[in-house]
Protein backbone atom coordinates (compact mmCIF):
# COMPACT_ATOMS: atom_id res chain seq x y z
CA UNK A 1 0.00 0.00 0.00
CA UNK A 2 1.23 3.47 -0.86
CA UNK A 3 1.89 5.62 2.16
CA UNK A 4 0.60 8.67 0.37
CA UNK A 5 -2.75 9.32 -1.15
CA UNK A 6 -3.23 11.87 -3.90
CA UNK A 7 -6.03 13.45 -5.83
CA UNK A 8 -6.24 15.73 -8.80
CA UNK A 9 -8.72 18.39 -9.76
CA UNK A 10 -9.13 19.02 -13.45
CA UNK A 11 -10.56 22.39 -14.42
CA UNK A 12 -13.14 20.68 -16.55
CA UNK A 13 -14.19 23.66 -18.64
CA UNK A 14 -10.62 24.54 -19.54
CA UNK A 15 -9.47 21.01 -20.29
CA UNK A 16 -8.96 20.49 -24.03
CA UNK A 17 -9.13 16.72 -23.88
CA UNK A 18 -5.69 16.38 -25.46
CA UNK A 19 -4.99 13.19 -23.50
CA UNK A 20 -1.35 14.11 -22.89
CA UNK A 21 -1.86 13.59 -19.14
CA UNK A 22 -3.18 10.04 -19.60
CA UNK A 23 0.07 8.22 -20.50
CA UNK A 24 1.98 10.51 -18.11
CA UNK A 25 0.26 8.95 -15.09
CA UNK A 26 2.32 6.05 -13.73
CA UNK A 27 -0.70 4.50 -12.03
CA UNK A 28 -3.31 4.86 -14.79
CA UNK A 29 -5.57 7.14 -12.81
CA UNK A 30 -6.79 9.33 -15.64
CA UNK A 31 -9.21 8.76 -18.47
CA UNK A 32 -11.14 11.02 -20.75
CA UNK A 33 -14.81 11.36 -19.94
CA UNK A 34 -17.50 10.17 -22.30
CA UNK A 35 -19.25 13.48 -21.77
CA UNK A 36 -17.92 16.70 -23.21
CA UNK A 37 -17.43 20.10 -21.64
CA UNK A 38 -18.86 23.40 -22.84
CA UNK A 39 -16.23 23.61 -25.56
CA UNK A 40 -17.00 20.11 -26.81
CA UNK A 41 -13.88 18.44 -25.40
CA UNK A 42 -13.90 15.08 -23.65
CA UNK A 43 -12.32 16.26 -20.43
CA UNK A 44 -9.89 14.33 -18.26
CA UNK A 45 -11.00 12.93 -14.91
CA UNK A 46 -9.84 10.52 -12.24
CA UNK A 47 -11.28 7.21 -13.37
CA UNK A 48 -9.25 5.36 -10.79
CA UNK A 49 -8.86 7.81 -7.89
CA UNK A 50 -7.56 5.30 -5.34
CA UNK A 51 -4.40 4.81 -7.38
CA UNK A 52 -3.41 8.46 -7.36
CA UNK A 53 -0.20 9.14 -5.45
CA UNK A 54 -0.18 12.88 -6.03
CA UNK A 55 3.06 12.65 -8.00
CA UNK A 56 2.09 15.65 -10.19
CA UNK A 57 3.27 14.03 -13.41
CA UNK A 58 -0.02 14.68 -15.10
CA UNK A 59 -0.09 18.31 -14.02
CA UNK A 60 3.36 19.18 -15.22
CA UNK A 61 2.76 17.86 -18.72
CA UNK A 62 -0.69 19.35 -19.08
CA UNK A 63 -0.14 22.02 -21.75
CA UNK A 64 -3.05 24.05 -20.50
CA UNK A 65 -2.09 23.90 -16.84
CA UNK A 66 -5.57 22.86 -15.79
CA UNK A 67 -4.65 20.17 -13.26
CA UNK A 68 -4.16 20.85 -9.56
CA UNK A 69 -2.67 18.12 -7.41
CA UNK A 70 -3.30 17.37 -3.74
CA UNK A 71 -1.48 14.93 -1.56
CA UNK A 72 -1.75 13.64 2.01
CA UNK A 73 0.37 11.28 4.08
CA UNK A 74 -1.64 8.31 5.17
CA UNK A 75 -1.73 7.95 8.91
CA UNK A 76 -3.54 4.65 9.17
Amino acid sequence: MARVQGAIVVDRERCKGCEVCVPACPTQVIELANEVNGKGYHYAYMANPDACTGCSNCAIVCPDGVISVYRVKKTA
Binding site: A7, K16, C18, G54, P63, D64, G65, S68, V69, V72
Partner: peptide
Amino acid sequence: IIKEENLVYSKTKLMTDNVLSYCPGCGHG
Protein backbone atom coordinates in the same frame (compact mmCIF):
# COMPACT_ATOMS: atom_id res chain seq x y z
CA ILE B 1 -7.55 15.22 0.31
CA ILE B 2 -8.65 18.13 -1.83
CA LYS B 3 -7.94 20.85 0.69
CA GLU B 4 -5.85 23.96 0.41
CA GLU B 5 -3.22 22.67 2.84
CA ASN B 6 -2.70 19.52 0.77
CA LEU B 7 -2.12 21.31 -2.52
CA VAL B 8 1.18 20.22 -4.04
CA TYR B 9 0.88 21.53 -7.57
CA SER B 10 -1.20 24.09 -9.39
CA LYS B 11 -0.66 26.51 -12.21
CA THR B 12 1.67 29.33 -11.24
CA LYS B 13 0.14 32.75 -10.64
CA LEU B 14 2.53 34.03 -13.29
CA MET B 15 0.29 32.40 -15.84
CA THR B 16 -2.88 34.44 -16.27
CA ASP B 17 -6.32 32.85 -16.19
CA ASN B 18 -6.86 33.46 -19.91
CA VAL B 19 -7.57 30.26 -21.83
CA LEU B 20 -4.51 29.43 -23.94
CA SER B 21 -5.08 30.00 -27.63
CA TYR B 22 -3.05 26.90 -28.53
CA CYS B 23 -4.38 23.72 -30.07
CA PRO B 24 -5.07 20.85 -27.65
CA GLY B 25 -1.82 19.19 -26.61
CA CYS B 26 0.48 21.84 -28.07
CA GLY B 27 3.83 22.08 -26.31
CA HIS B 28 3.74 25.88 -26.35
CA GLY B 29 1.50 25.83 -23.26
